[in-house]
Write a protein that binds this DNA or RNA. Structure first.
Length: 988
RNA sequence: GCCUCGGUGGCGGAAUUGGUAGACGCGUUGGAUUCAAAAUCCAAUUUUCUCACGAAAGUGUGGGUUCGAUUCCCACCCGAGGUACCA
């Protein structure tokens, strides 16, 4: 009786929390900030059809523990959850089945919710958001409109309303404007501006808008029928599905994120993010500081080659120029004698895929154009070459080659026997180039000789400026973000086209709902799926969507057919949670002011280049336009490590006989021999004598060539059929899957078949997925929560293994029993003062748990809980004070059992309202009383002391102690080192 | 190549302003309880030598600083992840 019945307890409290809205966060009235706020957020999931496995909740459990801890600490905690519910898988499924993506998405969300609920999270579900919900994407469309109606003013270094720009144009034309805009934007006077037609004006403004429409080179994926962002492409193929991607020019919506490069970079310094993630974003933005330099072409004075360099100090070391093979000027530079070679080289490079170029990174190739450039400072002639290591997409697509100071230039010069002038003082470059900048002085550089690298950089840029041959310049790798997707299941743009010019739809008429289509594929002539919609035109008189064939381009106009990318909805969702049901604003200023930004954000590292950059961009934009008071969305961020699955593999060898094949499940040693091409060492008698070997097949017919690694494969088997010694339950596996039925298993001498084990991402195809529901049913959610934390540090990748779970489960049982020491297992607590040793146990645990919380080191807290429960059990502690405090400490980790015990102790309120116990150092005084003493680092003995004494006091006691005196034997020590609470060393 | 993180028992992992390395858990071994099993409890468990008392070595390798180094410094080895002809 009174057993720890976790199933009943957990169901009971999950219902209680839901019924009582225990975790509903309140937005205080009138901006009352007397209670400090804390915003803990998880990266919201895309609800896929596969449901959750034990890896998914890891981060949620961590943020939940921290949220519960913060509630105990008196914070007003916002801890919401929602779904990133627009996305490709639902659309692919719709294409295959014809089912509307909204339907499947809804079903998946229900499965997710049921699974999440079983784990006992303290989410405030009243604030749930779904990016595909019209009440949500209304505001995504609104933000797009704001981006469309904004431009970036470099002088103010912020985004401003486009109306401001129009006013400036009307007053001064382009003269006083310093904006981030398209390269070929024309200059004009105020008069010229006023004279422009409305269409012309709109076209010009489009060059300035932050959300703009432009003909851009995009990554087109024919297989998926859509463009992809750079971060959606991995190794030249699409991240999803692995389809090939080609470059193509298309008219696309883009986001002028490049306006924010510097601020995105600077902002990183203010964030408490993991270093690898910051480094990733720094590289992704890819800032290079240097100079652009113009090299006139000899004999063609109108032609100038602009190069970008980060090392202007080395300009006297230039011995040739290198252009990208597809550089615009190549045709004009090539002489007749070199024409054939150049064209062949261009063809060769163009044919190389991204992959080939990466694979052949060591191959040096290039071709001379026949032309020469004139060095802007020395006037010397330098040959112009083409090389495929120069990329047209970066910088100016041309480099000044300084072989003595750059590895690629050096190798190139050696390979083609070009001169390698040395411009470094006292440095030998005969074997390798000199790349370092530190302690380096320039030589053979005219007036700049003897300057340090740093001095020379400045002086040479100055000189180039004087000569009109160059200027200081900074380039970035980050490009503007393509914002159009040729998909159905995404946010429609609030845009229609009048005379080819995009117009926005007023907020009053938003959201613009997705139209119904019969098929979710692109149209036959290549338009996006929305091109199939019968009702998809905008009636400007009645302000509503009408049938597409009514378009007359007078009052009824075509609507945008593209939809927004996945990152649109996820870039601002953190703000919607603050005021999730606001129908008039994306969130009220009061709510935004109160909750500010996310204090703790937990999620995977895979969003480093996408979501986490875009959402910083939008936050800064909304800040510029006065909607937000914060400049960054996520103050602290933790990347939780993935939980991996352990999979088991059976090695199968297909032996071919005349006309048929027999599949053997072979031993690891035979497999290894095949791998090492030592097939002749394999003993074939067990194969031949296998009891199930078909009698109809003659062994003499064996095709010897089938004894090779090519005829093997490894097949995943459900891990449940494998024991701790990796021995396979052959009968079980055969009954489980039809594949295994036909294999002839070759057991070892002891009759066991041993499988290979591998640790890998959890996936259905590997049969290594562990479902949290199963764990909850067998051990309970509290055990699952604690065990996931106990596996190891949060940030670390770790394999899931059910082996250790009994330890945590056993702890919860002992915790339960600690209270049920009364007659017949009833709860027994007393109000008598607690024993000092019990107080010691308690306060040492409080201290440790608080420290662990500060460090997000949840795994070590669990160890101290285990120690505490063991000690208190041994002490037969029944003190209410001690046991209640301990329950509060444990409750963030194991909330269900804590609530149940809390109630059994006579409390009416949820334990989540209880204050966190206060640490009392005096309870620990006795705990630290042993000081080992050493003399000359050799002799040591222990001395019992009281704690909380000063160094001097301890030293006095130590020195006068008889043991010390005996040890010293009349000698005087040189030094006595005292570390309070630790150790005492006496140095002779 | 570069960047980042890491390397501690049979396993997951503790321990950092330098202070008794191996907490806690798993596993293993032995024992108690039981007719038996499950469950529970107790004890041992870094390695080597020793019947034992005990001794020595020991945190990837080699050096260094220090009375004292898993921790700090230098050089190297190995592993994981990321990234790249980025000028």
């Amino acid at each position: 009786m009174n057993m720890y019945d976790f199933l009943e307890i957990e169901a009971k409290w999950q219902k209680y929390w839901a019924d009582n809205q225990t975790f509903k966060a309140i937005n205080p009235k009138d901006g009352d900030k007397s209670k400090p706020k804390y915003y803990a957020l998880d990266m919201f999931p895309y609800p896929s059809g596969a449901g959750l496995h034990v890896g998914h909740p890891l981060g949620y459990i961590a943020s939940d523990i921290y949220s519960r801890y913060k509630r105990h600490k008196g914070f007003n905690v916002l801890h919401p959850m929602g779904y990133d519910s627009f996305g490709l898988p639902a659309e692919q499924y719709a294409i295959q089945t014809g089912q509307h993506p909204a339907t499947t998405t809804l079903e998946n969300i229900e499965v997710y919710r049921a699974q999440l609920d079983k784990i006992g999270f303290s989410f405030d579900w009243s604030r749930e958001v779904r990016t595909s919900d019209p009440s949500y994407f209304k505001w995504t469309q609104w933000i797009f409109k704001e981006l469309f109606h904004s431009w970036y003013d470099n002088q103010a270094d912020k985004a401003r309303a486009i109306d401001d720009l129009v006013a400036i144009f009307e007053k001064d034309g382009t003269d006083s404007v310093q904006a981030v805009c398209d390269e070929n934007t024309p200059s004009f006077t105020a008069e010229e501006w006023k004279a422009f037609s409305e269409k012309k004006k709109q076209e010009i403004l489009l060059d300035y808008r932050i959300a703009y429409l432009a003909e851009t080179q995009v990554n087109w994926c024919p297989e998926l029928g859509t463009v992809l962002a750079n971060d959606e492409i991995v190794n030249g193929v699409s991240e999803r599905g692995g389809h090939p991607v080609v470059r193509k020019k298309m008219k696309q919506w883009s986001m002028r994120i490049t306006a924010y490069t510097e601020r995105l970079l600077q902002g990183l310094k203010t964030l408490d993010w993991p270093q690898p993630l910051k480094d990733f974003q720094t590289n992704w933005i890819g800032k290079s500081v240097g100079a652009s330099v113009e090299f006139p072409v000899k004999g063609k004075e109108d032609l100038k080659i602009e190069v970008f360099t980060t090392r202007p100090d080395t300009i006297y070391g230039v011995s040739f120029l290198n252009l990208a093979p597809d550089h615009d000027l190549v045709a004009g530079l090539t002489t007749d004698t070199q024409k054939e070679a150049v064209e062949e080289y261009q063809k060769k490079t163009a044919a190389k895929s991204e992959r080939d170029r990466q694979a052949n990174i060591k191959d040096i190739s290039g071709v001379f154009t026949g032309s020469y450039a004139v060095h802007p400072l020395t006037g010397e002639e330098v040959p112009i070459w083409l090389a495929d290591y120069v990329l047209s997409g970066y910088g100016t697509g041309a480099v000044m080659s300084v072989p003595c100071g750059d590895a690629r230039d050096y190798n190139f010069a050696k390979h083609f026997d070009l001169p390698i002038p040395n411009i470094f003082k006292d440095i030998d470059i005969s074997e390798e180039p000199h790349l370092a900048k530190e302690n380096t002085y320039i030589a053979n550089s005219g007036a700049f000789s003897d300057l340090s690298v740093e001095e020379a950089t400045k002086a040479i840029i100055e000189k180039l400026k004087e000569e009109g041959a160059g200027k200081a310049e900074t380039t970035y790798r980050l490009r503007d973000a393509v914002f159009s997707r040729q998909r159905y299941w995404g946010e429609p743009f609030p845009i229609y086209y009048k005379d080819g010019i995009p117009q926005t739809i007023d907020i009053k008429y938003l959201p613009l709902h997705l139209p119904e289509v019969k098929k979710y594929l692109p149209t036959e002539d290549g338009a996006p799926p929305l091109g199939r919609a019968d009702i998809w035109a905008w009636d400007t008189e009645n302000n509503k969507v009408v049938a597409s064939d009514l378009v007359d381009d007078k009052t009824i106009f075509p609507l945008e057919l593209n939809t927004m990318p996945g990152w649109a909805g996820s870039s601002w969702y953190l703000f919607r949670y603050m005021d999730a049901h606001n129908e008039n604003e994306f969130a009220s200023p009061e709510a935004l002011d109160y909750w500010e930004n996310v204090d703790l954000y937990i999620g995977g590292i895979e969003h480093a280049g996408g979501h986490l950059i875009y959402s910083r961009f939008w936050t800064k934009f909304l800040y510029d336009r006065g909607y937000l008071k914060v400049k960054e969305p996520f103050q602290k961020l933790i990347n939780q490590g993935m939980i991996l699955g352990e999979s088991a593999l059976v090695r199968v060898l297909n032996l071919k006989f005349a006309g048929t094949t027999v599949s053997f499940a072979i031993s690891a040693s035979d497999y290894k021999k095949l791998e090492q091409n030592k097939a002749d060492e394999i003993d074939l008698t067990p194969y031949q004598n296998h009891s199930d070997f078909p009698s109809a097949i003659k062994w003499e017919d064996l095709d010897k060539s089938s004894l090779s690694i090519e005829n093997t494969r490894r097949i995943h088997v459900l891990i449940d059929y494998v024991d701790n010694d990796n021995i396979l339950d052959i009968e079980g596996a055969k009954a489980w899957s039809i594949d295994f039925k036909e294999f002839l298993f070759l057991p070892d001498a002891d009759g066991n078949y041993v499988v290979d084990r591998e640790v890998d991402k959890m996936s259905k195809s590997k049969f290594n997925v562990v479902n949290p529901d199963v764990i909850c049913e067998k051990y309970g959610a509290d055990t699952l929560r604690m065990y996931e934390m106990f596996l190891g540090p949060l940030e670390q990748e770790k394999p899931w293994s059910t082996a250790g779970i009994s330890g945590v489960h056993g702890f919860l049982k002992r915790f339960w029993r600690l209270f049920h020491t009364g007659e017949n297992g009833s709860v027994l607590v007393t109000d008598k003062p607690a024993a000092p040793e019990s107080l010691k146990t308690l306060h040492k645990t409080i201290k440790k748990v608080e420290e662990d919380m500060d460090n997000f080191s949840f795994n070590t807290s669990i160890s101290s809980f285990m120690i505490a429960v063991n000690e208190l059990t041994a002490q037969k502690c029944t003190s209410r004070e001690v046991l209640e405090s301990l329950t509060i400490l444990i409750s963030p980790y194991a909330p269900h059992i804590a609530e149940e015990i809390w109630q059994r102790l006579g409390h009416k309120e949820s334990i989540s309202t209880a204050p966190f116990p206060v640490f009392d150092p005096s309870a620990l005084v006795e705990a630290v009383k042993e000081y080992p003493i050493s003399f000359n680092g050799k002799v040591r003995f222990k001395l019992e002391l009281d704690a909380d004494l000063s160094k001097e006091e301890i030293e006095g006691i130590v020195m006068s102690h008889e043991k010390t005196q005996a040890e010293l034997a009349g000698r005087t020590p040189k030094r006595v080192i005292v570390v309070p609470g630790r150790i005492v060393n006496i140095v002779g």
